[in-house]
C-alpha cells in the first residue's frame, strides 16, 4: 500500500504544479507593468478604463436579465409539469438539454438568419432588438443548468401539498407560484443563477457575432492590444469564477427554508 501512496503524491504534486504555475505566472506578469518594480498598475489601468467598465456593466446587465428571464420561464414550467402534466416531462426535459449539443456559434448563426433584416421578426435591425436577442441566446445557453437546478429544488419540496394548502386558503395560481413555490426553491434558483452568471459573463461567440460590446469581445480585443492588463484580468476572472462556483455550491446544498446566512438567528416566536 505504501508504494501506491507515493505514486499518488507524485501525481498530485505534478497536477498541482500544472494547475498553479499558470496562475502564478499570470499574477507575476500582471505586477510587472512598471519597469523594475512590482505594482498593481495593470489592475488600476483596467479599472480606470471606460471601455472596460462599459463592457463589464453591459455583460453584468445582460447576464442578470438572462437569469431573471430564465427563472421566470423555468419556474412556472417545472412547477406545472410536476403538478399537472407529468406526461410532458420527458419532452420538456429533452428540450432543456438540447443546448448542450448545440455549440453557441451555431445557435447564434440560427438566430442571425432567423431574425435578420428580411425575416418576420427583424430583431437584428435595431439596437434594442439585438440586445433582446443576446439575452434570449443567454437564456437558451443556461436552460440545461437552470432547469436541472430548479427541478431538483422542486423535487425536494412537496409541491402538491403546498399547492393544496395555498388553494384552500384562497390563493390564486400566480400567488401560489410567487408566494409559496418561489420562496421555497429560492436556493435552487440562486444556485442555477450563479452558474448562468459564470457562463454568460465571459461569453464570446454570441456577443461578438451580434456586435455587442460585452466583456468577452472586450477581453479578446485587449489581448491583441495590451500585454500586462490581460494577465491582470486572467487573475481577476479566476477569482470571480471561484467566488461564483463557491456561491453556487453553497446554495445547491442548502435545504429548503434554510436561512440565507446560516449563522444569522431568526426571529423567535
Amino acid at each position: 500500500m505504501k508504494r501506491v501512496s507515493l505514486a499518488s503524491w507524485l501525481i498530485t504534486i505534478l497536477a498541482g504544479l500544472y494547475f498553479l504555475v499558470p496562475l502564478y505566472a499570470a499574477f507575476q506578469f500582471s505586477l510587472q507593468m512598471k519597469r523594475d518594480t512590482l505594482s498593481f498598475a495593470a489592475y488600476a489601468s483596467v479599472f480606470q478604463s471606460d471601455v472596460f467598465l462599459r463592457a463589464f456593466v453591459f455583460s453584468l446587465v445582460a447576464s442578470l436579465a438572462a437569469i431573471m428571464a430564465g427563472a421566470a420561464l423555468v419556474v412556472p414550467t417545472a412547477y406545472w409539469v410536476r403538478l399537472r402534466l407529468p406526461k410532458l416531462r420527458p419532452v420538456v426535459e429533452f428540450i432543456s438539454l438540447l443546448p448542450l449539443i448545440i455549440p453557441s456559434v451555431v445557435l447564434v448563426f440560427g438566430h442571425i438568419r432567423m431574425f435578420g433584416s428580411s425575416s418576420f421578426l427583424p430583431l437584428t435591425t435595431t439596437d434594442l432588438g439585438t440586445n433582446l436577442l443576446l439575452v434570449a441566446g443567454y437564456v437558451v445557453l443556461s436552460l440545461p443548468y437552470m432547469f436541472r437546478a430548479i427541478d431538483n429544488g422542486m423535487a425536494a419540496i412537496d409541491i402538491g401539498t403546498l399547492t393544496e394548502a395555498a388553494e384552500s386558503l384562497g390563493a390564486s395560481r400566480a400567488r401560489i407560484i410567487l408566494g409559496v413555490i418561489f420562496p421555497n426553491i429560492r436556493a435552487a434558483i440562486v444556485s442555477g443563477a450563479f452558474l448562468t452568471f459564470s457562463i454568460c459573463l465571459g461569453e464570446f461567440a454570441i456577443a461578438s457575432l451580434l456586435n455587442r460590446q460585452t466583456f468577452g469581445p472586450y477581453l479578446v480585443q485587449l489581448g491583441q492590444d495590451r500585454a500586462y492588463e490581460p494577465a491582470a484580468l486572467a487573475i481577476m476572472s479566476f477569482g470571480l469564477t471561484w467566488i461564483l462556483m463557491a456561491l453556487m455550491q453553497a446554495f445547491a446544498n442548502r435545504k429548503p427554508g434554510q436561512r440565507l446566512l446560516p449563522f444569522r438567528k431568526g426571529p423567535t416566536r
Binding site: A15, F19, V21, L23, S30, L219, A231, L233, T241, M245
Partner: peptide, 23 residues
C-alpha cells in the same frame, strides 16, 4: 482538489488563454 477542479473546469475561454500566454 475537488473544489479546485469545480472551478478550473469552468475556467475556460479568454482568461485561460491569457494565463497560458503568461506561462
Amino acid at each position: 482538489i475537488t473544489a479546485f477542479c469545480g472551478v478550473a473546469s469552468n475556467f475556460a475561454g479568454v482568461p485561460l488563454a491569457f494565463a497560458f500566454i503568461a506561462t
